[in-house]
Structure formats: C-alpha cells, structure tokens
Amino acid sequence: MLVTSAPPPWHIALKELWQARELAMILIRRELTVQYKQTVLGILWFILRPMVTVAIFATIFRYIVRFPAGDIPYAVFVMSGIVPWLYFSDALQKGMNCLQGNAHIITRIYFPRILLPISILIAPLADLTVGIVALVLVMLLYGITPPPHIVFLPCFFLLIYLFALGLSLCVAGPQAIFRDIGILFGFALLMWMYLTPVIYPLSILPPFLKSLLIYNPLTGIVQSMRWAIVGYGELPVHALGVSVVATALLLFVGMNLFARLETNYIDQV
C-alpha cells in the first residue's frame, strides 16, 4: 500500500471499496438502528413519519389550495410525490453531513470514506419502501390497483439513490469546510420542492414554465415514480433523460470533489 499526497488511483480505490463491503453493511445497519433509538415508538416511526407528513400535505392542499389531479384522488397524487421527495430531502441532508457527522470516527481511523455517503443514503430507502407500501394500501382503499409497469420501480429507486448520492458527494466536502452551505441548502430544498411537481401536476403550469421544469432532474424522477406506482400519465421520457444525464454528471464531479476534499476537511477539524 503506497500512501502519497494524492488520492489513490481509481482501480485501487475500487478494490478497497469492495474489500470494505462488510463495513458498508454495518454502517447501513447503524443508520437504521440509530435513527429511532431512544424513541418510545421505535420502529413504528418508519410507518408513522411518512404517513403523518402525507396527511399534513394532503389536508393542506385539499382544503386550502386545490389542484386538479386528473382522474385520481388528490391524496393519492400528493402522496406519490411526497414519498419520493421525502427520501430525497432526507438522503440529501444526511449525505451532505456525512463527513461532519462522523468527524469523531474519520479523524481517528481510516476506511474508504466514500463508503459513508454510499451507505448512509441506502438506509432511508427503507423509509421509502415503507412509504410506497403505505401508498399502495391507500390506493387499494380508493379502488386503484398499481399498473403492471410497477415492475420498473427498482430502476427509479436506483436513479433517485444515485442522484441524491451524486449531489451529496458534491456538497459534503464544501459543507464540511464551510457550514454555511448546509444552511443555504435548507432554503434551497424548500424552494426545490415547489419547483418539482410534487404537490401539483405539471399540466397546471403555463407552457414556458413547464418546459423549464423539465430541466429539474427531480421532475423526471418524481413523475416516473408516479407513473410506475399509480399509473398516472405517461413515462416522461424527456425529463427522465435529463435526470439520468444529471445523475451521471453529478456522480462524476462528486466523486472527484469528494476524494479531494475529504482529507482537506480532516486536516481542518
């Protein structure tokens, strides 16, 4: 093993990552168990958290602002947007803080640190799954059955995971050094949700805004998940293409940035 001022070349980094796969499992399990430790309801929160959030949004937007949701009940529409959105915002906040939150470990012991965001973002996929199961139950209650193309759902799980990972990798390093970025991202997330067809359908927007929102990578992801689970609308091919390209780009930039900044951060703690 040769240690120099540069990060190890990518084939060695990959080999190290593969050797650390057991550690990844432990880190994922740690995320899952730590999340609801010292709570009375414990594991029940997995189900309650998405349900309560959806209930709040569904109520607000049902009685205060009413969006037309086509031929499906608005509650189902909003839930199919909120559930993936919750994953994204949860994952991004955890991923962004992965260096800072684990400072006590990474300054004392070495392991491939990219494993942190990789495994931290896998854990909330459990919440996402529970949220989708809850959504399907609600759908059945309304008499809607999921379409056959629900089999494509795992692809969109992978896509939303990789997109959140790419963005986390880009932001984690800068955020660890300048904490301001975390605060700014809090506002950005708030805005971002309203710029994504989470609580309203794209069809209510004026054409120019609609064509603009397609370039928000989350539009494609949220719309595709809605298409896969509820069968709402068509597969948004154009928007999905944007999401895939953006994800690839973020992953590429993110991995380089992360490799460069992780040691900078460790030297500044």
Binding site: V3, S5, T107, R108, Y110, T263
Partner: peptide, 23 residues
C-alpha cells in the same frame, strides 16, 4: 499519516500489510 487518516503534503510511505491503529 501511517494509519492513513490524513495524507502527507509530500513524500510517501510504503506499507506492507494491514494497519490497526488506535489514535
């Protein structure tokens, strides 16, 4: 540096075998 927690600014270390560290 020997336990790989941080990287050197210059120079290099060649390690043969696994390192267990308690820093």
């Amino acid at each position: 540096i020997l336990s790989r927690v941080t990287r050197p600014t210059s120079g290099q270390v060649l390690l043969q075998g696994r390192v267990a560290s308690l820093l």
